[in-house]
């Protein structure tokens, strides 16, 4: 029973960190570099998950002061189809395909854009370092396949942050340390640190007057606590995550763009239902606790997400093998 519990917990942790969240308004549909992980096991080498993250971007902040009378509001809905495949005990591959819907609304106009974002192919290495602690090293590459040339109703290309793709090759690296049964039996803790390198789109608008644009480099660190509650037929796991994210200013024409970049401290609360070995469902809500931004920016005031994950086995399961033995 203990082995099963640890096993399920591990599955849960990997799933919980597997939601590719849409960025705030300032980085288009590019996924956050936090919250990536391949989640496969020996028994279930393939995992397919669908995730949806809603982000309300409706807070006008100047440095750390929230301003009133903002005529703008925005939201984005970041949907993600994700595949992960186990290559080896310590290695796995993952592929995320996002589909993004964004809306920007002011007192006089509503503009929308939607489409496939940039897919991310990743490689994960989880070396066995300790019986008590698990380590995950993740490296991913984002392909510039999403559209960055979506236009508004009068034929003008929308700004970079309203596009589904960035038109750039970007790189994501992540380290996560998971400590199950931290201090007490039902408590697990995970620390994660990630970095995303964004390259430059040198001809964003495909025009003679070429517009060069680069989203700011991003660091993200988080501390996640989860507590397991066992019921008769399922496991419920509430969690609390503290996230600190900081991002450099964007670059326009190879120089730092004003009113971009800053520091965000967010808190998120979630609940996972482990329905079976193969099926997991998770929901979460989050909101900023503190933001210190460069200049004036409209930024996230609320986010929520839901994800469903199903694992698939290709061959004999571990239990089948035991029976054979």
């Amino acid at each position: 029973m203990e082995i099963v519990r640890i096993y399920i917990t591990l599955i849960f942790v990997l799933v919980i960190t597997n939601i590719n969240q849409a960025q705030t308004c300032c980085t288009a549909g590019a996924p956050l570099s936090n919250n990536f992980s391949n989640n496969t096991t020996e028994i279930y080498p393939l995992e397919i998950s669908v995730q949806s993250t809603f982000r309300s971007i409706n807070r006008l902040v100047e440095n750390d002061e929230v301003l009133v009378n903002d005529p703008r509001s925005r939201f984005n809905l970041h949907n993600n189809l994700r595949f992960a495949y186990r290559l080896h005990d310590f290695f796995s591959l993952g592929l995320s395909v996002p589909y993004i819907f964004q809306q920007r609304e002011t007192i006089s106009m509503r503009e929308e854009s939607f489409g496939f974002g940039d897919p991310v192919l990743n490689f994960q290495f989880s070396p066995p370092i300790s019986k008590k602690i698990d380590l995950y090293l993740f490296s991913g590459i984002k392909f510039p396949l999403g559209s960055y040339q979506k236009t508004n109703a009068i034929g003008i290309q929308l700004s970079p942050d309203m596009q589904s793709g960035t038109g750039t090759w970007d790189f994501i690296n992540r380290l996560a340390i998971f400590h199950p049964r931290f201090l007490i039996n039902n408590l697990n803790v995970q620390y994660a640190l990630s970095y995303r390198y964004n390259s430059t789109n040198k001809n964003f608008n495909n025009s003679i007057a070429a517009r060069s644009f680069q989203f700011g480099q991003e660091w993200n660190t988080s501390l996640l606590f989860q507590y397991e509650l066992f019921s008769k037929n399922s496991i419920w796991v509430p969690d609390l995550e503290l996230q600190y994210r900081w991002q450099d200013a964007n670059n326009e024409q190879n120089l730092e763009a004003p009113n971009s970049g800053g520091h965000w401290f967010n808190i998120k609360a979630g609940l996972t239902a482990i329905l079976s070995e193969q099926n997991l469902l998770r929901i979460y809500v989050g909101m900023p606790v503190f933001q210190s931004l460069e200049g004036l920016q409209i930024t996230t005031n609320f986010e929520s997400g839901i994800s469903y994950s199903r694992k698939i086995k290709f061959k004999q399961s571990l239990s089948d093998k035991i029976e054979v033995l």
């Binding site: 508004n152 700004s159 608008n205 025009s207």
Partner: peptide, 11 residues
């Protein structure tokens, strides 16, 4: 193609 969306949107 030289008219650029500055980001904030109309108004």
């Amino acid at each position: 193609d030289e008219v650029l969306d500055g980001g904030p949107g109309q108004d």
